[in-house]
Amino acid sequence: METANPQEIKKHVRTYITVFVALLTLTIITVTVSYLHLNIPAAITVALLIATIKGSLVASYFMHLISEKKIIYATLVLTAVFFIALMWLPIFHHANPVIYKNVP
């Protein structure tokens, strides 16, 4: 982004405003859906899906990830691998829980 000229930046500004409106709209949608009291799996899916879209918009446009250098992508891919591994821990635990015997 450091090579962008003022004309290009003006174009970016329009994108930032569009992303801002999208983020506010998605916030309203996710709150509205939460008041519908869907069943737990559906509620988790919708809430996390909307949060992921919002997070991707922030990362892609506000943080300029849509046009960044390879080394940043490489760092983030590595981070994503470890993050996913971390998120699997509760699932492993749930599938094979530690059972305490003779605990008073």
Partner: peptide
Amino acid sequence: NRVEVAGLYWHFVDLVWIFLFPVLYLL
């Protein structure tokens, strides 16, 4: 460049809240 870097941090803080909000408040 300094402001861009400060911005990257600030957007990350926003990003964390985007996940905290549904997880803690809505679900």
